[in-house]
Amino acid sequence: MSALEPGAELEPQDYLVTRADLVAYAGASGDHNPIHQDEAVARMVGLPGVIAHGMYTMALAARAVATWSDEAEVVELGCKFTAPVVVPAEGGATVRVAGTVKSVADGRATIALEVTCGGEKVLGAPKAVVRV
């Protein structure tokens, strides 16, 4: 885990999110809200289209943290859901997770995250703390 040193900019991780991923996540999480699978329903409630589950997007951030930290124990993970990840019917949407190690102290590394889709931040103030 030598990469987790204060000031280190971590290699951005890209994740393609498809409609099939949303169906699988709905089954695993029990969140079957139709805005995550049905274009007409999503648009009817004012969304630009089918959107990824916020918790799925957050899970992608956790996946990046696991990659960077060699799967260290996550002590804290948090964010605000600020913008939706719109997932088109064909292809998908790419979520990019970037990170910067803010501090390492008392056996813990604090990582400030930036989670974007199409250049737009989709999670506000995302942060992870891992045991090192």
Rank of each mutant, 00 (worst) to 15 (best):
M1P: 12
S2Q: 14
S2L: 12
S2G: 13
S2W: 06
A3V: 15
A3P: 11
A3D: 15
A3E: 14
E5T: 14
E5Q: 13
E5M: 04
E9L: 13
E9Y: 03
L10W: 00
P12V: 02
P12G: 08
Q13M: 11
D14N: 11
D14W: 00
D14E: 15
Y15S: 13
L16W: 09
L16E: 14
L16P: 11
D21L: 08
D21T: 07
D21I: 10
L22N: 04
L22R: 05
A24K: 13
A24C: 01
A26H: 08
G27H: 10
H32P: 00
I35L: 11
I35F: 04
H36N: 10
E39L: 07
E39A: 10
A40S: 13
A40P: 03
V41S: 03
V41Y: 07
R43N: 01
R43V: 10
M44K: 15
M44R: 15
V45A: 05
G46P: 04
L47G: 04
G49K: 13
V50Y: 05
I51V: 15
H53D: 10
G54R: 03
M55R: 08
M55N: 02
T57N: 09
T57D: 05
M58W: 06
M58V: 08
A59M: 08
A59G: 15
L60P: 09
A62Y: 03
R63T: 15
A64K: 01
A66E: 09
W68C: 12
W68A: 09
W68R: 06
D70L: 05
E71P: 05
A72P: 06
A72T: 11
A72E: 10
E73F: 06
E73W: 06
V74D: 07
V74Q: 13
L77Q: 12
L77G: 08
C79I: 03
T82W: 04
A83M: 09
A83K: 15
P84H: 11
P84S: 12
V85Y: 03
V85W: 02
A89H: 11
A89C: 03
A89G: 13
G91W: 00
G91Y: 05
A93F: 03
V95Q: 07
V97A: 07
G99T: 09
G99C: 09
G99V: 08
G99R: 07
T100L: 02
T100G: 00
V101I: 09
K102Q: 15
S103G: 14
A105Y: 00
D106N: 15
G107S: 12
G107H: 10
R108C: 04
A109V: 06
T110P: 04
T110I: 03
I111G: 01
I111S: 02
L113R: 09
E114F: 00
T116I: 08
C117F: 10
C117K: 07
G119L: 10
G119R: 11
K121F: 00
K121I: 02
K121E: 14
V122W: 02
G124T: 14
P126F: 11
K127P: 01
K127Q: 12
A128W: 06
A128K: 11
A128C: 11
R131L: 09
R131F: 05
V132I: 12
